[in-house]
Amino acid sequence: MDHIHKLKKLDGLVPIFINAQTGQFRQHSTITLGARGDSYYEYLLKQWIQMGKTEKNLMDDYLEAVSGMEFHLAKRSHPSKLLFFAELHGASKSVVNKMDELTCFMPGTLALGVHNGMPGHHMDIAKELLNTCALTWLKQPTKLAPEITYFNVAEGNEEDFFVKNNDAHYLLRPETIESLWYLYHFTGNTTYQDWGWEMFQGIEKHCRVENGYTTIGNVKSATATKPRDRMESLFFVRNFKIFFSFIF
Rank of each mutant, 00 (worst) to 15 (best):
N189Y: 14
G188N: 12
T187P: 03
K226C: 04
T215C: 15
W197G: 07
I216M: 11
E210Y: 06
W195S: 06
Y182P: 02
P174S: 10
L183H: 07
E178D: 12
W195V: 05
E175S: 11
F200H: 09
K205T: 15
R208K: 15
A222Y: 00
A224T: 06
Q193P: 00
S221D: 11
K220L: 15
Y184W: 13
G212A: 04
L180F: 15
G196D: 03
L183T: 12
N189F: 08
S221M: 09
T214D: 05
Y184G: 01
H185P: 07
R230M: 11
E232H: 07
M231E: 14
N189I: 13
T223C: 03
D229S: 14
F186R: 01
R230F: 12
T191W: 02
W197L: 14
D229A: 12
T225R: 01
F186I: 13
H206L: 11
T190S: 10
D229T: 07
Y192E: 12
E175R: 05
T225D: 01
R208H: 12
T214Y: 00
T215E: 13
P174G: 04
T215H: 00
G188A: 09
T191G: 08
G196K: 03
S221G: 02
G217S: 02
T214A: 08
N211V: 02
T187I: 08
T225N: 02
V219T: 09
E210P: 00
S221W: 11
T191Y: 13
M231Y: 05
Y192K: 07
Y192G: 08
P227T: 12
Q201A: 15
L183N: 05
D229Y: 07
